[in-house]
Design a binder for these strands. Structure first.
Lengths: 156, 156
DNA sequence: TTGCTCCTCACGTCACGTGAGGTGGC
DNA sequence: TTGCTCCTCACGTCACGTGAGGTGGC
């Protein structure tokens, strides 16, 4: 129903938010409530990202209006958050994008940060596996202890 | 070198911290620095746990002195933290321990909380796996894009 | 007038990290 | 006197959650 196309977007690479300054007439402006529903986040989250300089919607009075560019940025932010980057890192990478350039610098930073983050994720997976093992032992121990200490009266 | 015996302690079950009120003469009192080294935590962490009511060392003047009981509690706290419980949950479970009783209530709570936590851990592992997949794509994309945009001059 | 959506503070959460400024005993 | 270890505030971090109190337009 909702096309997310995070990395699958043929036009833009991951962590490259096109500014696309020309065509603002598409009229695809969204209010904060629309954005929240579309991306499955809270209003607070969108305002928080703006406060941190990650989003920069227009205003109609006080009401925020999100453009195509904001959507592209939000997709990147959510991808970054999903893979475990801090918002600070995400901002740094996104801000490195230059519409007129090879963006080699940006790509290198993204690559470097991503490889380091990959290491952290792999480590985290190990820790989770260990936690699961430990917790399984706790559960088993609790069950047998309960069974032994509280022998259910087995007859009517 | 250091016997941790988290769940392997034959005398006490996981999440049962014996008060052992009788034998305080063991003289195995440790200062905060000793505890920190022994358990691989910071001084701040030990003070924080105390502030949250999880530890309750004696005092000699202002200096904290940790007893066997505190060690037992700390082991449980660190086990609980490792498997992802909040300190609030850990405290709740530990505080349920009654030296003179079957502790069936405590065991039930531990079992219930543990099963729920197990669900969360399994979910977390899935999320990490997804994150790793996504990040791998980002890395691959960045690499090929870099390679294409920056064809290294291949001759002297 | 009611209802919906939007807004701006601003404090709370979680598990500590990190100084600042000071004390006690070898 | 210096060095080490201990102490108590108390603000900072991270990514938001959660009201409080108020506005704008159908």
């Amino acid at each position: 129903m909702m096309k997310l196309m995070l990395a699958g977007d043929p036009a833009t690479n991951a962590f490259e938010a096109g500014s696309n300054g020309a065509s603002e007439q598409g009229e695809d402006l969204a209010r904060i409530g629309d954005m929240a529903k579309e991306f499955g986040v809270t209003l607070r989250t969108l305002r928080f990202y703006e406060d941190k300089g990650l989003l920069n919607p227009k205003r109609e009075g006080t009401t925020r209006l999100y453009t195509r560019r904001d959507r592209a940025r939000l997709r990147l932010i959510l991808l970054g958050r999903k893979v475990g980057f801090t918002l600070r890192d995400v901002k740094q990478m996104i801000d490195l994008y230059d519409p007129k350039g090879s963006n080699a610098k940006q790509l290198k930073v993204v690559l470097d940060k991503s490889e380091k983050q990959m290491g952290r994720l792999v480590k985290q997976r190990q820790e989770i596996d260990e936690a699961i093992e430990d917790l399984a032992k706790v559960i088993e121990s609790a069950r047998t202890t309960l069974a032994n200490r509280q022998p259910v009266a087995a007859n009517g």
